[in-house]
């Protein structure tokens, strides 16, 4: 059986009158791509925020490889091996795409030099390969703010990959990407994840993507997990079809 990487137990959080997590239990297993689906406001992003230390749950624990990470800040959790890509790309807009990526690579390698040129670090080759992989190499020397939204999204994911994480949490990786390019992106992404042995969790609204790329899918509904299982089974579930997919 696969090793459990991230384990959430009894996570609860409430924002005023809204219960965003009401007893979330979930394991993320080694080698899997776990999809999270559910209607808007069901608490999917909140789960990612709690798993990465951005929000502290009011009850419950998150552990990573057996270590309790509930109260740790994002940077510490990141260093342990959980990287995150965002729904709205979070880039350093005034810096070039290559500089963005090299900052990530330097952070991962611990190259905190004050004298070496950022772009002369030995990680440059790897970083350029990563940009090639996600298809934004042509934008390497453009400032991040000049990029169209879809390309920013790719850089956002590439930034997370540059950290060589054990688990990558992605919030709607294909939103903002042109619909004709979604499949291509997910093909590239999932094969890159498999090659680098990175497990992933991704929030997704496109059921086609879930069916194709997820090994398991967890269905969120009003702060609870309704059902978890292989996409083939879960997506046939009548309740899920009615409430989440809307058929």
């Amino acid at each position: 059986m696969s090793r459990v990487l991230i384990s959430a137990r009894g996570l609860k959080i409430r924002f005023g009158g809204v219960i965003a997590a009401d007893g979330i239990d979930l394991d993320v297993l080694e080698g899997e791509n776990l999809a999270i689906i559910g209607p808007n406001g069901a608490g999917k992003t909140t789960f990612l925020n709690m798993a990465t230390g951005y929000l502290r749950p009011q009850a419950g624990t998150v552990s990573f490889l057996g270590q309790d990470i509930t109260a740790l800040p994002p940077r510490t959790i990141t260093k342990l091996g959980i990287a995150r890509a965002f729904q709205i790309p979070q880039l350093f807009l005034d810096q070039t795409v290559l500089e963005n990526m090299m900052i990530a690579a330097a952070a991962h390698a611990g190259s905190m030099s004050a004298f070496r040129h950022l772009l002369d670090l030995p990680e440059r080759k790897e970083v350029e390969d990563l940009l090639d992989l996600v298809g934004v190499r042509a934008f390497a020397n453009r400032k991040a703010f000049e990029l169209p939204e879809g390309q920013r999204k790719l850089v956002d994911i590439a930034l997370a990959l540059a950290l060589k994480p054990t688990v990558l949490l992605m919030d709607e990786p294909t939103s903002g990407v042109a619909s004709g390019e979604k499949l291509g992106l997910m093909d590239i992404l999932t094969s890159a994840l498999a090659r680098q042995k990175v497990s992933s969790v991704f929030v997704e609204h496109d059921m086609d993507m879930v069916e194709r790329y997820a090994h398991r899918v967890a269905v969120w509904s009003s702060g609870k997990i309704q059902v978890v299982g292989p996409p083939a089974e879960v997506l046939k579930n009548t309740e899920v079809r009615e409430h989440v997919i809307g058929i």
Binding site: T78, R84, F86, L91, F92, Q95, I103, A104
Partner: peptide
């Protein structure tokens, strides 16, 4: 990068 996006910087560790 602190000026650009401090949250992302923290998420790079």
């Amino acid at each position: 990068a602190i000026k650009g996006n401090e949250t992302r910087l923290e998420y790079l560790g």
